[in-house]
Amino acid sequence: MNELFRILVLPGDGIGPEVMEQAVRVLKQVSVQAGAHLELEYALAGGCAIDAHGTPLLDETMERARTSHAVLFGSVGGPKWEGLGFDLRPEIAILRLRKELNLFANLRPATLFAPLIEASTLKPEVIRGLDLMIVRECAGGLYFGEPRGIETLADGSKRGYNTETYSTEEIERVGRVAFTLARSRRNEVCSVEKANVTESGLVWREVMTELHKREFADVKLRHMYADNCAMQLVRAPKQFDVIVTGNMFGDILSDLASMLTGSLGMLPSATIGATKTAQSHDQTRFNPAVYEPIHGSAPDIAGKGIANPMAQILSVAMMLRLSLGMPKEAALVEQACIEALADGARTPDLGGNFTTSQVGDAVLTRLEQLAVVST
């Protein structure tokens, strides 16, 4: 491969740097095996950027993200920065990346790897073969709606307020991502909202219905209230193929879905926007895009070397597939993770005693073996 891929690496806070180190090791090995050329740039984001520069994300870092093929993001935040105002909280880093890069769809796969079937708290027969995708709208809704703020009332008490708002354009663009993904999977979409109690939910349902009728009639569509969806994910999760929902519900439901797979440390994510067609290949790519695990910075275990790096490594696999046009290599990374888990390479969250780096070693060993077989 002659193409040069520019990757911005933002390790973040807490366990972020620890799991990112293993993910980058995997990415470098893949690049060597595939003959790909990588240019990795590192920068601060989140709490560490606040400590060093007084802001969660420097303008300079934002510009690097714009000119990158993809951003590999760690986890940010922690108790150290909880007392800061909303304009300085570490999470502003990821929110700013999404907003200014016009990334509006967060893809969160919940796939149960066979070796982990006993790690889930649900019965094996309920979750065996689980493979669902949550498409979360991530540039609008309650997290971005205006007006928002905190005010002091006449009696001295405080009132916090946020606005849940969605437009036709915002709903249609994330809906198209969900319907398109479904066509390459089991061809089913479940649209989730609260149309029974919110106007924004009612508009969401109406727009999704019209979009489906107009452009995606070949895909099966059903609607479900968010509270029922949460219950159904625990009762019968395999009924779902692609779930598409708004920002807040997507945030909550994807965390719930992560535990179906055995651990929050197993779920990667991709945040994408408009597609671009690569010049040298007939492929649709998302450039730029942001790839990150959905787990937090876990400050309680930071520095102990026991954080699960699988979600960060699997985020690399998503990046290879969606932004770098390397689906074969992405599949090899995923298979290497499955085989490493089958060999017992598990951190304490999965009931094992491997360290973070030992799990990375196991994945690299399997990746090397699989590369030999594939050639």
Rank of each mutant, 00 (worst) to 15 (best):
T271I: 10
D282Q: 15
L221V: 01
G325S: 11
G273V: 03
A105F: 02
A43F: 00
V189L: 05
E164F: 01
W81F: 13
L320W: 10
G175R: 02
D255S: 04
I15G: 04
T61F: 00
L103N: 08
I92K: 12
E339G: 03
A154W: 00
L181G: 07
I94R: 03
D361L: 08
G250F: 09
L95W: 03
V32C: 04
L116I: 03
E41F: 07
V24Q: 04
P309M: 04
D227N: 09
E206R: 14
V32M: 06
E193K: 05
A119W: 00
L324S: 10
L88I: 00
V290M: 06
S269N: 07
T261Y: 01
R25S: 12
M259H: 11
R64D: 05
A274P: 01
S31C: 10
M266S: 00
V203R: 12
D51Y: 01
G351T: 04
V363P: 02
N353T: 14
R366T: 10
R346P: 03
E100F: 08
F73H: 08
A270V: 02
I313L: 07
R235L: 13
T180V: 09
K213F: 07
S280K: 13
V290Q: 04
S200G: 00
I127P: 06
S167R: 08
E170V: 11
H223G: 08
N196H: 03
F5A: 13
L8I: 07
F249T: 11
V363E: 06
P299Y: 12
T163H: 07
F240P: 01
V242M: 04
M310I: 15
L367C: 11
E118H: 14
T275G: 06
L132W: 07
R285T: 14
V71A: 01
G262R: 01
R235F: 13
S258A: 15
A114P: 14
L256R: 10
E206D: 13
Y42H: 11
R366E: 10
T209L: 08
G262I: 06
G246V: 00
M318Q: 11
E329R: 10
V372F: 13
T271V: 13
L4K: 14
L332Q: 15
H212M: 00
K213A: 13
T198L: 13
Q29M: 12
P327G: 10
A114R: 14
L260A: 04
P327Q: 10
V24K: 02
F113M: 10
A330R: 11
F5L: 14
V189D: 07
M133A: 06
S254W: 08
H281W: 15
L260I: 04
V372G: 08
D227K: 09
A195W: 01
K304R: 15
S323I: 08
A110R: 03
I50Q: 06
Y166M: 04
L221N: 05
T275N: 03
C337Y: 01
G141I: 01
D59T: 03
L256S: 01
Y291T: 05
A342F: 03
L132Y: 06
E3H: 13
A311W: 02
D13W: 08
A34W: 07
D13S: 12
